[in-house]
Simulated scan of single mutants.
Amino acid sequence: MTTTQGLDAAGFIAREGSLTRMPAPFAPVVGAARERIARGFGPDRLHSAYLYGSIPRGTARPGVSDLDLLLALHHEPTAADRADADALEAALDTEFAQVDGVGVLLFGTGTLLSELERHDLGWFVACLCTPLFGVDLATRLPRYRPTSLLARETNGDLAVALPGWRERAATATTDAELRALTRAVTRRIVRTGFTLVMPRWGGWTSDLTASAEAFAAYYPEHADRMRLAAATARTPAADRAPAVDRGVLTMLIDDLGPWLAAEYTAVHGEKAPRP
């Protein structure tokens, strides 16, 4: 049972989503996703499937929110697995107007259960993913508290992302590219800002507004820029002008982002490097 600030009565981060919270308009697309995943991947490849994001949290808006899926495979993903996932994404996105984009993450169970990913992908599955079918990997993972270790391993690599974002921003030639990058950058910056203060705040939230406000309580001098990032992330892409996206991206990539990466390392250390 959840008590306050995303924690259960014992002080562990509570699993945030549930199929019972799913808004009714999204039931058909989730049902189709479940059926097509089972048929398309089969038990030889697929260990379990999960839904995450605003749909299982109950905050999704038809025509605005995306559908986020994670597939845990018995083996590490191959090019053929990725091609099948891409086809699934395209088919669901085209067929269902309720969702504005579909994303399918692929991981092998060996990776998801590894010691290296215990406080990143493992935590993600255990706390942020809602099982669709299969044997829930959360039963093989620990329970988690909002600690500095969790902060470090989830978002302690922001500095690694900045150069790639800067290059993508410089080479974006279409509104679609710019909007996709803005969506990714604003969400990542807000979530990193939140996990920076998460151990002091003493809880967990995926809500972008709440995340920005939690950050603002500890870093008021950067509050306005974090609130702008959260507001941009929440605004449908069609309602934003390209000039707005470029302005926000420049501020985040060249100003707030570098400061946030340095402060994060100073407070929590650097994320363990991945192969």
Rank of each mutant, 00 (worst) to 15 (best):
P62S: 15
A243N: 05
L88I: 02
E89V: 05
A243I: 08
A60C: 07
G6R: 01
R200A: 15
R39K: 14
A27T: 15
G6T: 04
G257M: 09
A159W: 01
W204E: 11
V248W: 10
A266S: 11
L105K: 07
A210S: 05
A210M: 07
P199Q: 11
L128E: 14
P242F: 09
G247K: 01
T2F: 02
T174N: 05
P199I: 08
A49D: 12
A87W: 01
S206R: 15
A233Q: 01
H47E: 14
T3H: 09
L121T: 03
G269Y: 00
V99Y: 03
E263I: 02
L121P: 02
G202W: 10
I189Q: 00
A10L: 13
R227Q: 15
L116E: 14
T111D: 08
G58A: 10
I55P: 08
T2L: 10
D84Q: 13
T232S: 13
P220E: 02
A214I: 12
A151N: 03
E167N: 02
M198R: 12
K271H: 12
V197Y: 12
L252I: 11
D93Y: 00
P25E: 05
D245P: 00
D239R: 14
R15F: 13
R166A: 14
Y218I: 06
R187N: 14
P43E: 15
T59G: 06
Y144R: 08
A91M: 10
V30E: 08
L88F: 08
R183S: 14
V185Q: 03
L249V: 03
G203D: 10
R140H: 12
D245V: 07
P25D: 07
I189R: 03
A266M: 01
T192A: 11
A237S: 12
R225Q: 15
E16M: 11
I55E: 10
L88D: 02
V104C: 06
R45M: 11
M198W: 13
P236A: 13
T139H: 13
A38M: 12
T209K: 11
L260M: 11
R168Y: 00
T265R: 14
G40Y: 03
G156M: 02
D245E: 13
T154W: 00
A261I: 09
V102F: 05
S54I: 00
D100L: 09
M251S: 15
G269N: 03
A266P: 04
F194R: 02
R34A: 15
R152P: 04
L112T: 02
E153P: 01
E76S: 12
L162F: 03
G31C: 07
I37L: 12
R143W: 06
L196Y: 10
C129H: 10
L260D: 02
P275G: 15
L137V: 08
L196F: 07
L7V: 04
P23N: 09
V104P: 08
V99K: 00
F12G: 00
W201V: 03
T205D: 06
R225N: 06
L106K: 02
P43F: 04
A262Q: 13
L7I: 05
V185D: 03
T209E: 07
R152N: 06
A32N: 07
R166T: 13
R39C: 12
A14D: 10
G202E: 11
L181N: 08
L69V: 04
L71N: 08
P56T: 12
G108R: 00
E95P: 00
R225I: 15
A262M: 04
W259Y: 10
F41G: 04
